[in-house]
Design a binder for these strands. Structure first.
Length: 221
DNA sequence: AGCCAGGCCTGCC
DNA sequence: GGCAGGCATGGC
C-alpha cells in the first residue's frame, strides 16, 4: 500500500464531500432539541426519534421547564415511539436537573472548558460517551468527534482498526488524523452515517460500499 | 415473523 | 474493566 492510513481517511472524507455535499448535521431547530434527540436516538432509528420529537413539538412542549413540570406518565407517552421510553424519560429528566443548575441557559454551560463539560455530561445518568460527544459537538459547538457503530464498522471494513476497538481509542485515532475543527468533525461523522444508510443496508458485510470506495480511492480493501 | 435502529446502565465475574 | 442481559417502539 503506497499511502498511509491518514491519507486514506482524509481522501475518503473528500470523496464523501464531493459525492454527497456538506451534510449540515444535526437536523434540529435548537440546541435543546439536539440534546433531547441525542438521548432519544440511543439504539433507535432516527425515524422513531422524529415521531417522538414531533409529539413534543406539536403541543409546543419541547421546552426544559415544561418537561420538568409535566407528569412523568404524560412525558413517557409523548416519547413512546422512540422505544425504551421509561428509561429515556428518566434520562432526559436527569439532564434537565443538571441543566437547571445553569439556569437552563446553554451559554452558561459553554463558558466552561470542553473537558469540564464532557466530564459533567458523563456524570449525568443516561448519558454515555456517544451522547456526551453528540451534545458537545452538535449542541454546544465544542470540537469533538462523535464515533458510533457506523464509524467502527466503517474503519474496521477498511482494515484500519480492530473489530472490538474501544470508543475512546477509535475517537483518538480519528481525531489525531482529522483537522481540529468542529465543522470538520461534525461533517465527517455525518458523512459516514449518510453513506452507511444509503449503501450499507446489509450487515455484517457490505460489498457495495467497499467497492464504491475501492473504485473512487483506488485502494485494495 | 423476525431483525434492526445514530446506547447506556446494572450486576456479575 | 469487561461483558451478558434488560430496556421497547415502528418499519421492512
Amino acid at each position: 500500500m503506497a499511502k498511509n492510513n491518514e491519507h486514506i481517511i482524509l481522501e475518503i472524507y473528500d470523496l464523501f464531500f464531493q459525492e454527497y455535499g456538506y451534510q449540515n448535521w444535526w437536523p434540529a431547530d435548537s440546541a435543546f432539541e439536539v440534546i433531547v434527540g441525542a438521548i432519544l436516538t440511543q439504539s433507535c432509528s432516527w425515524h422513531n426519534v422524529s415521531l417522538a420529537l414531533n409529539n413534543l413539538k406539536k403541543d409546543n412542549l419541547l421546552d426544559p421547564k415544561k418537561i420538568l413540570n409535566m407528569k412523568i406518565d404524560k412525558f413517557e407517552s409523548l416519547i413512546k415511539p422512540s422505544g425504551y421510553y421509561k428509561q429515556k424519560a428518566k434520562k432526559i429528566i436527569s439532564f434537565l436537573k443538571y441543566f437547571e443548575i445553569y439556569d437552563f441557559d446553554i451559554d452558561n454551560i459553554k463558558k466552561n472548558t470542553i473537558e469540564k463539560v464532557r466530564e459533567e455530561l458523563l456524570n449525568i445518568w443516561g448519558i454515555g460517551e456517544e451522547s456526551a460527544d453528540s451534545i458537545l459537538s452538535y449542541a454546544f459547538d465544542k470540537p469533538m468527534l462523535v464515533v458510533d457503530t457506523y464509524t467502527k464498522r466503517f474503519t474496521y471494513r477498511l482494515s484500519l482498526t480492530d473489530v472490538d476497538i474501544k470508543y475512546s481509542d477509535l475517537q483518538k485515532y480519528l481525531m489525531d488524523i482529522l483537522p481540529h475543527d468542529n465543522e470538520y468533525y461534525k461533517d465527517f461523522h455525518a458523512q459516514i452515517v449518510y453513506h452507511s444508510k444509503i449503501s450499507c443496508k446489509k450487515k455484517p458485510k457490505c460489498e457495495s460500499c467497499i467497492l464504491r470506495i475501492n473504485n473512487l480511492c483506488n485502494y485494495n480493501i
